[in-house]
């Protein structure tokens, strides 16, 4: 509880300032690496070279020149594969988060603006989505429909829509009670005009925060599904499937697993930190926590 007597903390969140800056820098580097992967990787991620299989990374004995992070069981360059995997993982995550935003945002907006049975139905769907362990539904759908990238993107999109719907509905209800909307309505503004002109601009900052947090959740879901062999299919590299397939070589060639694993953790950690930082900036109530 903040009381008026509390002094405003001069240097709030000092502990995490450094971590946050580092995380944002990592996020930028990772996004850039993913975007530029085709330009910067030294090797074709699918090119096999059976003569230089299972070579260790730079600095170890038997290092094969230019395979900075070593090679895998088919002699493919681990770093090139990891960067292409990062690219695919990020593309899937962004596409999934956008789909979730569109579904959840629309439903949340409708629920907030049209009360009554429409709102009740949508909120019942939200409750249901929360109650169902989604990883299991994803398993079922991917097993039945096959693991094409289209199905995967749709599954990732459905995974987080309910969070957007809850946030948008809550914000819309909060906003609707405010005087400026009442004034707009009195002045004769229709529901569509109000939604576009007055409500949507106010939704941008909570949605940006939720989008960032959803991104990291989707990265985890996608890597998990690919790790289990139900997401991105070989030979196409994805960070999760690299860890999953590299598991068999762990005792002798741990670098095959460690490079993509490190990238996944760096990605989720930096994106989550970014989301947290955005949330702290957007929500005054949390600033003192």
């Amino acid at each position: 509880m903040t009381t008026f007597a509390d002094p405003i903390p001069a240097k709030r969140r000092s502990r995490s300032d450094a971590i946050q800056k580092a995380a944002i820098a990592i996020a930028v580097v990772l996004f850039a690496a993913a975007l530029l992967a085709p330009l910067i990787v030294p090797y074709d991620p699918l090119a096999q070279s059976l003569l230089s299989r299972l070579r260790p990374p730079l600095g170890f004995e038997r290092y094969a020149p230019l395979h900075l992070a070593g090679t895998d069981e088919l002699g493919r360059d681990v770093l090139s594969r990891a960067l292409y995997g990062l690219r695919l993982t990020l593309a899937l995550a962004v596409a999934g988060a956008v789909i979730g935003l569109l579904i959840g945002g629309t439903l949340g907006l409708i629920a907030g603006l049209r009360r009554g049975w429409v709102e009740d139905t949508i909120m019942a769907l939200v409750d249901m989505q929360i109650a169902i362990p989604f990883t299991l539904v994803a398993l079922l759908i991917l097993s039945l429909m096959g693991s094409s990238l289209t199905v995967l993107v749709l599954v990732l999109g459905i995974a987080g829509w309910e969070q957007y719907a809850r946030i948008v509905r809550a914000e819309v209800r909060k906003l609707s009670a405010l005087p400026f909307l009442e004034a707009a309505r009195t002045a004769g503004a229709g529901p569509l005009y109000t939604a576009r002109r007055h409500i949507l601009p106010n939704l941008v900052s909570p949605l940006v925060v939720q989008f960032t947090l959803a991104l990291s959740n989707i990265v985890i879901l996608e890597s998990t599904l690919s790790f289990l062999g139900l997401g991105v299919q070989p030979p196409q590299p994805s960070l999760g499937s690299m860890v999953g397939l590299g598991r068999d070589y762990m005792p002798t060639a741990p670098w095959i697993v460690l490079t993509p694993a490190a990238l996944i953790v760096a990605l989720t950690f930096s994106v989550q930190t970014l989301g947290d930082w955005l949330r702290d900036r957007a929500d005054v109530r949390l600033r003192d926590r």
Binding site: T224, G240, A261, I264, V265, T268, F269
Partner: peptide
């Protein structure tokens, strides 16, 4: 925070 960022399979 780190617990959230590290997926269980990793």
């Amino acid at each position: 925070f780190a617990g959230y960022a590290v997926p269980s399979f990793i």
